[in-house]
Amino acid sequence: MRLLALNGSPRGPKSNTRFLTDEFLRGFAVTPANQAETLDIARPSDREKALAAFWHSDAVLLGFPLYTDAMPGLVKEFLEQVATLPRPDRRPTLVFLVQSGFPEATHTVPVARYLERLASRLGCVCAGVLRRGGIEGIQSQPAWMTRGIRERFRQLGETFGRTGRLDEQALRQLAGRERYSRFALRLVCWWSRVMYWDRELKANHAYDKRLDAPYAHT
């Protein structure tokens, strides 16, 4: 199977989306005949290659971070370009990967519904939408903390590479809980503030300006 893996993160090759995509591709590559090419659509030269290759692949994996509750504008504009291109009779199977910073799976439900409908609109089979929350900061965590999530992406990649399908139960398990307890959420709020946001603000000498409202009426 020839898989075109498209990273729709505006952060490009160093993004969390690319990190998870690479794990999926490690599993995909277990099947000997499989071939994959990865392109970052935030890079103009890659975007052109992606447009040229999209309709001629056996399968396309399109991954992106959740931006204001849907796909980034970059991804939507790319898809709009894809839809203007001539479509062959034999169309690629589509797989989507959506990751979010917030931990709850509920944030990615509407866009997943859209992506399934999009595949149908494009005349493609949708093999599934990989959804996972709580991903911001994953690359700065020690390997033991992320082993489980990396393994899940690898296993899903292996299954897809072998069968061309994804198991619905595995996708549900990957997405995790729709909601968390108030205690767990309070912990997320505190942890992210103290261990991430405030540290970064201080490192950037911007902590004193963190609440600035530069466009407020005076």
Binding site: Y67, T68, A70, M71, P72, G73, L74, V75, K76, E77, F78, L79, E80, A83, F102, Y114, R117, L118, R121, R182, L185, R186, V188, C189, S192, R193, W197, R210, L211
Partner: peptide, 27 residues
Amino acid sequence: LVLGFSSGLLKRAADKLIPILLPYIDA
């Protein structure tokens, strides 16, 4: 609507609104 949702142009503008938010999370 373009491909069943608002245009990519409108979405790009919506993405540019995140400075109205603080990084801190409210649960």
